[in-house]
Design a protein around this nucleic acid. Structure first.
Lengths: 186, 186
DNA sequence: GTCTATAATTTGATAGAC
DNA sequence: GTCTATCAAATTATAGAC
């Protein structure tokens, strides 16, 4: 849709990478500027404040993440493939070096975030939960809305928690086993 | 054992509270000093560096957390009570205002932490996993070590993830339902 | 759109008096 | 053990030239 300039894209890419690795409070405009070969004042030209930049990062991340999951309402979507793909997205985060899920790391830091960034972070989780709930209701016959919400929460929490725990324990995760677990929908 | 001075205890308390709420990169010596009514230079007298202080916080937290869980080897320990108590500890974190599990928030920020703090954080998870694995093996007859490790990881990840997700979604968690889930050990 | 220059503030940390 | 005073560095952000 809106064709962002190359510079803006590179700023967002760099900021996203830094936030996923270290969080909101450990990256600076100078770092990002240096990384893409401009000065920090030029970053401020595109994103007036740090909160503004971080919020833009989260919105783009959420949008691209949800879009990558596929449409739960699509009639020919395979139910288990949808969930497998979802888990695969988290597995990708684990594989990409020293990174966390953007939503997960920001949610951990939530109390220290500017409102703008905290709101965008909450939205990430709301949209994830909505997608998961839709999949569970449409494809797994979980009609009770309280139950489907609980199961969706369980899946999301398990994946975020796995990233958190695996960050400190360098053990390789058996994501395959987790997939099975979830598909059984115990 | 070592009788720490009142001041040291208050510094550690304040630092722990700040880290649990905002993470390592969003608290300062001045904040803590002001909170307990001394000057930041006096905090440096007790803890030379920020890394030093944070590491001390994590070590104390881990020690007290594990101790509070009860001894898995104790012959008269009730198996389900041990696990229920474990989950209760996490529920307490959720109830205490705007707080995360110290290990969870630091693990999210791991790449931005001084080595000293990162190492202490890893140790928190190692000791949690050891305790959980012991409980599973001693009381639930999970003899296959790979399986008990996986189940322990699942429980720990689920609890850390629940804290992360619930921080952004202000929904009340059905911990009771989770307890049932875990006790079934699906 | 990018730059130089700089303001205003905060931070981790140290020296030395009491 | 706590204080005052201060440093050196980093940070977010702005003004104004090109």
């Amino acid at each position: 849709m809106s064709s962002r300039s190359e510079t803006i894209t590179r700023i967002l890419d760099s900021a996203e990478s830094h936030i996923c690795k270290k969080g909101y409070n450990a990256f600076s405009f100078r770092e990002i500027a240096h990384e893409i070969g401009i000065k920090s004042a030029s970053v401020h030209y595109h994103f007036p404040t740090k909160a503004n930049l971080a919020a833009a990062v989260v919105l783009r991340y959420t949008d691209s993440f949800i879009k990558s999951l596929g449409e739960p309402n699509s009639p020919n979507a395979d139910a288990k493939d949808l969930l497998k793909n979802y888990i695969q997205e988290f597995q990708n985060v684990l594989i990409s070096n020293d990174s966390m899920c953007l939503g997960g790391i920001l949610s951990a830091e939530l109390t220290s975030l500017p409102d703008e960034v905290a709101d965008a972070t909450r939205q990430f989780f709301i949209e994830n939960l909505r997608w998961l709930t839709d999949v569970l209701q449409l494809h797994f016959g979980v009609n009770d809305i309280a139950i489907s919400h609980f199961k969706a929460m369980k899946i999301l929490a398990m994946l975020e928690g796995t990233l958190i725990v695996m960050r400190s324990l360098n053990r390789e995760v058996q994501f395959e086993e987790m997939v099975e677990d979830f598909l059984n929908l115990s």
